[in-house]
Design a protein around this nucleic acid. Structure first.
Lengths: 199, 199
DNA sequence: CAGCGAGGTTAGCGGTCGTTAACCTGGTGG
DNA sequence: CCACCAGGTTAACGACCGCTAACCTCGCTG
């Protein structure tokens, strides 16, 4: 695996540009020639790196779901015992916000193009997503024991909707800076959970 | 205009099915033959009702934006003077939730396929959306005067993300019933705004 | 009752798109 | 030094898709 300081491989370039284009115009709305052009090669040259257009989307979506889940598990393990469930929830929220702010195109794809996948890939992505959600649900129910499980799950999905709204927050620099935005989203997420928990 | 008790016209059938299909598989992922088949006619028969596939999407998106804005203006006018800004905000939230719960496919399309429109249509939809947002921003700032305008706008977009998460809340009947879901979303939206306003 | 328009049908055209085939080239290891 | 492979190229095929053309058939209406 390439470390963060390595120059991006051609393969990584392709994935990054494909993610941006898919997010902008939809999977079916982007041609392979455009993806190729975005990385300086043309059309069929992509097939030296991927077996097909579908495979790029699959790798992107599996990668997103896996990254989110892995990060959440790590945060859960790191603070286990050392801190209360409320701090763990804060950590989960922080991780999700980092992802939503740093990889907006991926966040967009994540809940938009899932149905374009082959059955096996879609099942894998769904499974990873479900694990991620269940992890949140458990933590949320520890913080707010009054919540039933279905209600907690609905609340978690809704907060994901809130956090994933970043692509709609002024693409350009009119928004109040990354730090302030992250803090605002964090407060709102906690406020939403608190209101859900006050049943 | 057809009253609610009239049988739906062929045109309305087409729009409804097109919205569902566009939401499920994306604008480019649906063929005109499928839309036709969904209403019992086949492919090119649609062109007796619409000049093209683009026109269906345009009418859907303009309709959504217009409906949301009109409803919000009506609610604002109805309770003007009779109630405080907090009650007006509740009314706006209630209206948005009704829409998100009753017309899930349209909510999905609303922030997903905007870029597929012709320039003029896209500008119109964007203008309607912007008016809708500004209307919310004004009300939110009345309820929470500490909020700056950019922060209030970000908060509004984020709450839209929260409310528009309905398509992710278990398509089938596993969710706790429409009324309970609406109430949960309402509480969470208020909680999110309150947390944003406690700067 | 003639005729006409609303609302269908099927056949097919033209363009686009994903993919494959065939070929080229520069660097690298034996 | 030569063979080879990674990573490109262009040409072209086949499928699909939006849309048009041409035609049909009812139900009204003058």
């Amino acid at each position: 695996m390439a470390s963060r300081t390595d120059a991006p491989t051609r393969r990584e370039q392709i994935l990054k540009e494909a993610a941006r284009l898919f997010a902008e115009r939809g999977f079916h709305g982007v041609g392979v020639d455009e993806i190729g052009a975005a990385v300086g090669i043309s059309g069929p040259g992509l097939y030296r790196h991927f077996p097909g257009k579908d495979a790029m989307l699959a790798e992107l979506l599996v990668g997103i779901s896996g990254q989110l889940l892995t990060g959440a598990k790590r945060r859960l393990a790191e603070s286990d015992g050392h801190s209360g469930p409320s701090a763990v929830l804060d950590s989960l929220i922080e991780g999700h916000i980092d992802f939503a702010l740093d990889d907006r195109p991926l966040i967009t794809l994540h809940d938009r193009e899932l149905d374009r996948l082959r059955d096996s890939d879609r099942k894998l992505v769904r499974q990873l997503q479900r694990q991620y959600v269940e992890l949140w649900v458990e933590v949320v129910r520890e913080v707010y024991p009054g919540l039933t499980e279905p209600t907690a799950r609905s609340a978690v999905h809704s907060v994901f909707g809130l956090l994933n709204s970043t692509p709609h927050l002024g693409r350009a620099g009119t928004l109040p800076g990354r730090g302030a935005t992250a803090e605002l989203l964090h407060r709102m997420a906690r406020g939403a959970f608190a209101a859900a928990g006050a049943a």
